[in-house]
Nucleic acid binder design. Structure first.
Length: 580
RNA sequence: GCCUUCUUAGUUAAAUGGAUAUAACAAAUCCCUCCUAAGGAUUAGUUGUAGGUUCGAUUCCUACAGAGGGCACCA
């Protein structure tokens, strides 16, 4: 409908004095015909006259009056009116207006989908938490966000792949391994525990599980605590090297066991959170520096060969001049070990080589300073940093009984994602994570998420869905064999539905906008508005005591509302409720 | 100091450069003999300051004031 109107408008614009093809193009690009915010302004609205008037130095109101006359004379629309500073408001014939209902009945769960993504290959990397402990509520926000934009992009015609990058190669994993071993033999060490080791209860349970099938016995336990420096960082490093030296076999067994155990718990939590990944990428698969054929060596060598990396003070540095980063960055330390950054450079090269059109990275806001150097590395390796889209996700504060829930990784006291799911359920958790723009601070109120007031938007929306569902059921019981149909609506029988139909017709645009801006919260706010329109209608109209014709047309229309709510929730990874 | 996000009603939050800035909570008043009251209706209230671009600015630009985050040969 909008398309044909735009064609008519273009014909009108082209017929103006002193116009040329370029101007027509500029005007059509800058202006838009949209579904009116409010039914008072007709069904559709265009701002083309204001755009054209400013470019052509004409009076916008006069231009709007002319376009009004022009469109009216076509006889295609019920009403055309120039309004305000130069808007054109169009009211469609009832049949055209109700077209969206046909569309929903035909497309069902696919209503709202589009192909604006043009089949672009998009990879989304998110969460990528270190496998050194369970996922906590901070990771949950990235999980909900990454998964939701994945679903939204997929629904709007992109070809999406979701990936989790497992940092299974660095020092953190050594600390994890040491933590588990020391916990196992803690009694033999006179209850000693390193200051910077991981302290959560999960460390102990991994250790216990390991000892069920393995024997951990050191010939010379005392040597493990030999030569310990007082600095916490140096202390843990010394313990790591002592443990490795004392019994390399046990070290490797515990290391792989701990990793597997934690990765499994992460996967279990994500399954419960309804987040699924297409691939899991191990940092360790990038290989080692001393292996010339490994990906990490190849990336660094290529950077050196191309003059983008150089040696200085015994270390290898990446030149980041072209990226706006404030200093050059170390890839290989002067002691010959690669930095975390070096792995990430190789990882991003790997991603670029896989041929995606867009790489979306969902990172915690604390990685903000990291963006420029990664962009620099992508450019330096001969690709374009434009491919990389980094979305930062801000921290979430949890509030319980009005108080902020304190969390400290150091002491192992934190609210895990699993705790959150158990407390309020995966769907409500996802909903509240997504209810605010990802790059802004979120105060997550656990009590609100469980409350039964209207303030709890999650239930407000679900309630609308459940109400319609039960209404449909009752309608079918009352009228066996009677189908809902479009005829009644087209015959202009039940005008009170108009507002709902108008709201539904906005949905595909909301999805597109949400995909373009990567903002799932737009869908949440839309659903709230739609639910509100429905609840209001429901209160004013006692559906099941209407005449059969009316009932038919109303239930038909409400089914479309329910389908739309259901589709919107699905895009957020939330299951619509059939009863409450 | 540098980089970055942000500042909207008493509070928490919306708004591809468009019409009278949108909701909820809190306040006041109403609506269950009724399809789920986890609901509905009515009233009152908002764009940090100073400039600029524009037919039009909450939105874009500049400065200022205030808040958060980031600035490792850590990951």
């Amino acid at each position: 409908m909008i398309k044909t109107i735009n064609q008519k408008i273009e014909i009108f614009i082209s017929s103006l004095d002193e116009i040329n093809d370029d101007l027509v193009k500029t005007i059509t690009n800058k202006s838009s015909t949209t579904i009116s915010e409010n039914l008072k302004n007709g069904h559709l609205t265009t701002n083309v006259c204001m755009v054209a008037a400013s470019l052509l130095k004409l009076d916008s109101k006069e231009l709007a009056n002319n376009l009004e006359k022009n469109l009216s004379e076509l006889g295609l629309y019920k009403d055309v009116k120039a309004a305000g500073p130069g808007f054109i408001n169009i009211t469609l014939h009832r049949k055209d207006f109700a077209l969206v209902l046909h569309q929903i009945i035909e497309e069902k769960q696919n209503f709202g989908e589009s192909n604006i993504g043009d089949n672009r290959k998009v990879q989304i990397e998110f969460i990528s938490a270190n496998p050194t402990g369970p996922l906590h509520v901070g990771h949950g926000r990235g999980a909900a966000y990454g998964d939701a934009i994945g679903r939204i992009l997929q629904a709007t015609g992109s070809s999406v792949e979701k990936e989790y990058y497992i940092n299974d190669a660095g020092r953190q994993i050594d600390i994890l391994t040491a933590s588990v071993i020391v916990k196992i033999i803690q009694k033999e060490l006179d209850n000693f525990f390193p200051q910077n080791a991981y302290k959560g209860a999960y460390i102990e349970s991994i250790g216990k599980e390991f000892t069920l099938k393995n024997i951990v016995k050191y010939n010379d336990v005392g040597s493990i605590l030999k030569d310990l420096p007082s600095d916490p960082e140096e202390e843990i490093d010394q313990i790591i090297s002592n443990l490795k030296r004392s019994d390399e076999k046990i070290w490797h067994l515990v290391k792989s066991f701990s990793l597997e155990s934690i990765i499994k718990s992460i996967k279990d939590d994500l399954r419960d959170f309804n987040v699924d990944f297409d691939s899991w990428f191990n940092e360790s698969s990038l290989g080692k520096l001393n292996d010339n054929s490994s990906e990490i060596s190849k990336s660094i060598n290529k950077l050196k060969d191309d003059g983008m990396a150089y040696e200085k003070d015994g270390a290898v540095w990446l030149n980041t001049d072209n990226s706006g980063d404030d200093k050059h960055r170390v890839l290989v330390r002067d002691d010959g070990r690669a930095t975390y950054f070096a792995s990430d450079v190789a990882y991003h090269k790997n991603k670029v080589d896989r041929g995606y059109d867009d790489l979306i990275n969902v990172w915690g806001a604390d990685h903000h300073g990291y963006i420029k150097r990664i962009e620099a590395s992508i450019d330096a390796l001969g690709s374009s940093k434009e491919k990389l889209i980094v979305k930062l996700v801000q921290f979430a504060n949890l509030f319980k009984e009005g108080k902020k829930v304190k969390m400290s990784t150091r002491t192992g006291e934190f609210f895990t994602l699993k705790d959150l799911i158990e407390e309020i359920g995966a769907d409500a958790a996802r909903f509240y994570y997504l209810s605010k723009q990802a790059d802004q601070h979120l105060d997550f109120d656990l009590d609100l998420a469980k409350s039964d007031s209207k303030e709890n938007i999650f239930y407000y929306i679900q309630y609308a869905h459940a109400r319609i569902f039960s209404l449909e059921k009752k309608f079918k019981e009352m009228n066996p064999g009677l189908d809902t149909n479009i005829e009644a609506i087209e015959k202009n029988i039940y005008k009170e539905c108009d507002n709902l139909i108008h709201e539904i017709s906005k949905y595909p645009n909301v999805v597109n906008k949400s995909a373009i801006t990567l903002q799932p919260h737009l869908i949440i706010f839309y659903l709230r508005d739609l639910a509100q329109s429905f609840h209001s209608f429901y209160n004013d109209n006692h559906v099941l005591s209407e005449s059969k014709d009316n009932m038919q047309s109303i239930v038909f229309c409400l089914s479309a509302v329910r389908q739309t709510i259901s589709n919107g929730l699905e895009l957020l990874g939330i299951k619509p409720m059939k009863k409450m």
